[in-house]
């Protein structure tokens, strides 16, 4: 059992094979080895949710998982959501509802909101708040974040073509 292990991980639809130390955290692997800096490190103590990614489709905190645990599995980051330059309805909703101030929590908020909507496509406001319990916004911007998730669930965001400019702006922030 050497102190370096070879892993193969699919990240945002691309397969990567790398030698990693077992102690390398998934979030460090994503940011420092793959350059996926859209996923942020906030508290680094499993509280804030800024590092949230999807592992085989469900949300996890990538600061609280070793990269070796993702061997053979599929990881989706905030950078893997948009398709052909078009934001998902959830991403558009965050833009249109102005669901961010400084933007630091936004990638984690969107990844957790996406997981929440997969498990519960039509959540109540209370269910949205509880579903985002593991994500902290220190700008105190929860009101618009909840509104954005509700808008995405209700399908009330504008169409792709109407927000192409906005799309690229939001992607830049995230």
């Amino acid at each position: 059992m050497a102190r370096s292990t070879t892993i193969t991980v699919e990240v945002d639809d691309v397969s990567y094979t790398d030698d990693v130390e077992p102690r390398l955290l998934l979030v460090q692997y994503l940011r420092e080895r793959l350059g996926k800096t859209g996923t942020l490190i906030g508290c680094d103590t499993t509280n804030c949710g800024a590092c949230t990614v999807h592992l085989d489709g469900t949300s996890v905190k990538s600061c609280t998982m070793f990269a070796v645990q993702a061997d053979g599995r599929r990881v989706t980051t905030i950078e893997g959501l948009a398709r052909d330059g078009k934001l998902t309805p959830l991403q558009r909703a965050f833009h249109e509802c102005h669901a961010l101030q400084c933007g630091f929590c936004t990638p984690g908020m969107i990844m957790q909101s996406a997981s929440l909507l997969q498990e519960n496509p039509h959540p109540s406001e209370q269910e949205i708040r509880e579903g985002l319990e593991g994500n902290l916004c220190r700008c105190t911007g929860y009101q618009n974040i909840v509104a954005a998730v509700q808008a995405a669930a209700d399908g009330t965001t504008t169409s792709d073509s109407a927000t192409e400019n906005g799309a690229s702006e939001t992607a830049g922030v995230a």
């Binding site: 592992l55 949300s59 998982m65 997981s115 579903g131």
Partner: peptide, 9 residues
Amino acid sequence: VADPQVRHR
């Protein structure tokens, strides 16, 4: 327990 992400892992 904790929050949704923690409950997934």
